[in-house]
Each structure stands twice: as structure tokens, then as C-alpha cells.
Amino acid sequence: MEEKSKVIQLKNIQKTFHTKNKEVNVLRNLNAEFYEGNLYAVMGHSGNGKSTLIHILGLIDECDEGEYQIYGKNVKNLKDKDASYMRLKNIGFVFQEFNLVPTLKAYENVMVPMLINKEIQAKERKERAIELLSSVGLKERINHFPKELSGGEQQRVAIARSLANNPNIILADEPTGNLDEKSEREIFTLLKKLAEEGKCVIVVSHSSEIKNYADKVYILDKGKLEGENE
């Protein structure tokens, strides 16, 4: 694991939510490092802050205190425009809900994030979308609308979409929460394959099945990440 390069560095991350009558200290002095080519599982009880961590990692939420670096570059307190650019270049999200556009075909859904990426030539986009769908095993389904696909297939379209701009970080928050066991194994296999191809894949899951795929399993408890067997 040591020869792989470090993608994410978190130091003393603090996150507190303030509601009307109480404060929730979700993340407390959280430290972690994530490397290329690994699949990380993040587990823990409901309400422990797993989604919050994913949001902070994905730059769609901000931590209150601490340091956050991607490839050694500080990404804390970025302006919206810079944060958007970081997400475009480096981060792909997979959520529990597939969030596909019902009026767009599978390949058109995959193309959506590419439409603003100037580095992918306009006429290459469709080809690339079809390639990505093939790589998640949906070669035969490129022209299907979301409602014509099973849940597992829809999630694979969503994974293909998260790969649209070729990011190095894949953040999946309970990607199999809505799926049966067979589909779950397919999705985990796919995420594992991405890690093997060199991406840094972080998967939040309640299913212990993920342990069979993860290079490292973290437990989020009391606001900190701890290795399962440490």
C-alpha cells in the first residue's frame, strides 16, 4: 500500500451542526488518509456522521475546523467556482438514490457531467458515455430510459455517470441501500474493479458484505475514524 500515492489527507476535522435547541458534534478531531488504488469501507451506526464525512470529502459541505488536502493541495474554504472545478476534475458521487433524469436515455444521463468539461471533445462525449456504460456491463442498455432498467442497472448507470469526467476519487454513500443482495455484489465488484484500476474508492455501507471487497475497513464512531482491527 505504501508505494501508492496519497490522494486525501484529513487532519483534525471538526463538524458541528447547530439546530434550534441543540448542537450535534458529528466529527471530532477526525484524522485519515486515503490512497489511490484502494477501496475503503466506512461503516458505523446510523447517525454517526458517515454521510457528513462523504459530503465534506466531496466538497459539497464544509468542515468547521481542520485541514483537508487533495493531492497535497488545500481544498478547505474554496470559493464555489473553485470547489465546483475540484469536483468536476477529481470527484465522482454515487448515492443511494440513483438520481437519473427520467427523460434522458442511459447514455445521455452519463453525458450530463461531460457537457461542461472542455477537456472532453464534444463529439467524443457520446462515444465515451457508451464506453463507460460498457465498462459497467450495460452495453446492451445504452438507449434505455431509467424506468426501463432494474435498480441495479440504474445504479450502474449512476456509477458510469460518476466516472464521466474520469475523477480519481469515487465517493459512494450506501450505493446498495436500495438493492437486493445479488445486485449489491455486482455493484461492489464494480467498485472494487475501479479501485484496482487505480482510483481511490470510498464506500459507506451498512452491509458487512463490503468487508469482502474493502482493502481497509473504517468504523466511524464518536466522531472519529478507526480501522476495524486496530
Binding site: 459539497i60 464555489d80 467556482k81 465546483s84 470527484i91 458521487f93 438520481n99 457531467p113 461542461i116 469526467n165
Partner: peptide, 18 residues
């Protein structure tokens, strides 16, 4: 209706202007 679509656009790197 399209809130989550807009969310996905933002998460995949669209700026507010985009």
C-alpha cells in the same frame, strides 16, 4: 421536480453559473 437533478449537476462540477 428537478431539484435532485440540479444537485447532481452541482455535485458533478457545474457551477451556479453553469
Amino acid at each position: 421536480r428537478e431539484s435532485n437533478y440540479i444537485g447532481i449537476l452541482r455535485a458533478s462540477g457545474y457551477t451556479k453559473t453553469n
